[in-house]
């Protein structure tokens, strides 16, 4: 379970998150919606441990462990996975090499045995097929020359192979056409599991037609200003974020 309490975060001494509290029980999918500049990406980067995000107060625990005490690779080994809004291109490193290095680094950090090359290839082949990805693409340098849709699919593939306890999807719908959105959403839905929490961060309601959340939260001016069931997303789509901006102000 992810439990965020009273989290405050600044960038260059400018407060972005101001006392944000949120619980995502294990097995649930929660959506965070909010206007531009509300702090959505700051929340995801802070949970992942990106340098430059100064935590000025509060805590964020996953299964009782304070994530904020750990460096980014340790958080990953504890089960934090962030699907990037803009996945990085890594020239010269084949996707398969990158993913196997990541998987084995996580295993090592958890004191588990290394995954052998044949077992790894078998695992990835199966997952790639489920996402309708061409396996040969995985032999190319990670994300280099990939389309927006291919990059997002590659993120979901990595998530599927790394099998995290907490998956954070940061604007996963951005840059996707309807077909790609459906494939990516199917991939995400297939990863819903009783032992996994998911945090879906999005500006638009569209994604939530495909990934049905258990709860929807509205983030405005650095904190959660409203929470509700899936219908809250529809209401936001109809009425916009205006009334919440006023609450926050």
């Amino acid at each position: 379970m992810l439990s965020i309490k009273n989290l405050s975060v600044s960038i260059d001494d400018k407060a972005i998150l101001s006392g944000l509290s949120l619980d995502v029980p294990t097995g649930e999918v929660h959506a965070i919606m909010g206007p531009n500049g509300a702090g959505k990406s700051t929340l995801s980067y802070t949970l992942a441990g990106k340098p430059g995000y100064q935590v000025t107060g509060g805590s964020a625990t996953l299964d009782g462990v304070n994530l904020l005490d750990l460096d980014p690779s340790q958080r990953a080994a504890r089960g934090v996975f962030l699907s990037f809004q803009y996945p990085l291109e890594i020239p010269g490193v084949p996707a398969l090499t990158f993913l196997r290095t990541a998987l084995n680094a996580q295993h090592k950090a958890r004191g588990e045995a290394e995954v052998s090359a044949p077992d790894f290839l078998r695992l990835v082949r199966g997952k790639a097929a489920a996402l309708r990805m061409d396996f040969d693409m995985l032999k190319r340098a990670l994300n280099v020359g990939f389309s927006g849709g291919e990059k997002k699919r590659m993120e979901i593939l990595q998530m599927s192979v790394l099998s995290p306890r907490l998956a954070i999807l940061d604007e996963t719908d951005s840059g996707l056409d309807i077909d790609a959105l459906r494939i990516v959403s199917d991939g995400v839905n297939a990863l819903r599991a009783p032992d996994r929490s998911m945090l879906v961060i999005t500006h638009y309601q569209r994604l939530l037609d495909y990934i049905r959340p258990d709860r929807v939260h509205v983030l405005s001016a650095g904190r959660i200003v409203a929470s509700g069931g899936p219908d809250l997303a529809l209401e936001l789509e109809r009425e916009g974020y205006d009334k919440y901006s006023k609450v926050a102000a």
Binding site: P51, D71, F84, A105
Partner: peptide, 14 residues
């Protein structure tokens, strides 16, 4: 630095 963070996020120590 962005690539280093991306790798770290996937569990690869710096």
């Amino acid at each position: 630095d962005e690539a280093l963070f991306y790798a770290a996020q996937r569990g690869i120590p710096e």
